[in-house]
Lab assay of single mutants.
Amino acid sequence: DEIHIHFNGVTIEFRGLTEEAKKALEEAIKRGASEEELKELARRLIK
């Protein structure tokens, strides 16, 4: 299970995320999180 985020022309790929983690990332994107914020969020979620 993986998710691809297209962000300002950059694709960020995450693997092994739970549904909750995906929802958290989607919410962050909707509120306009920066690419760095998304990566940091993903790091926290994957652990």
Rank of each mutant, 00 (worst) to 15 (best):
R31S: 13
L38D: 00
D1A: 12
I3F: 14
R15P: 14
F14S: 02
L17N: 02
R15D: 10
I46E: 08
E20V: 07
E26I: 12
E35Y: 14
T11N: 06
E40F: 02
R43C: 03
S34Y: 01
T11P: 03
E37T: 03
E20G: 11
E2T: 15
G16S: 04
E26W: 11
E36G: 05
E26F: 09
L45D: 00
G32Q: 01
I5W: 09
A33E: 02
K22A: 07
R15M: 08
N8H: 11
F14C: 09
F14K: 01
E20N: 08
F7A: 05
E36Y: 06
R31P: 00
F14Q: 01
L25W: 13
A42R: 02
E27Q: 10
R43L: 14
G32E: 02
L17M: 10
D1N: 13
A33F: 06
R44A: 14
L25P: 00
A24N: 03
R43K: 12
E37I: 02
R43D: 15
K23H: 11
L38M: 08
V10A: 08
S34N: 10
L38V: 13
E20F: 05
A28K: 01
K39Q: 12
F7P: 01
E2R: 13
V10G: 10
A24G: 03
L17F: 12
K22H: 06
L41C: 01
S34A: 05
E37L: 02
H6E: 13
E19P: 13
K22M: 12
I3H: 09
R43Q: 12
I12W: 07
G9E: 05
A42S: 03
N8P: 05
I29E: 02
V10W: 03
E40P: 00
F7H: 06
E27M: 09
E26P: 00
G9A: 03
K30G: 09
A21C: 03
V10E: 08
I29R: 06
I46R: 04
A24F: 10
R31F: 09
V10D: 08
H4D: 04
I29H: 10
G32F: 04
K47E: 15
E2A: 14
I29Q: 06
R43M: 14
I29T: 04
R44C: 09
E20S: 07
G9M: 01
A24P: 01
G9Y: 03
A28R: 01
T11E: 08
E35P: 12
R15V: 13
K39T: 08
R44W: 10
L41R: 00
E40C: 02
I29K: 06
L41H: 01
N8I: 06
R15W: 12
G9K: 05
A42K: 01
I46C: 14
G9F: 03
I29W: 14
E27V: 06
G16P: 04
E40L: 03
R31E: 08
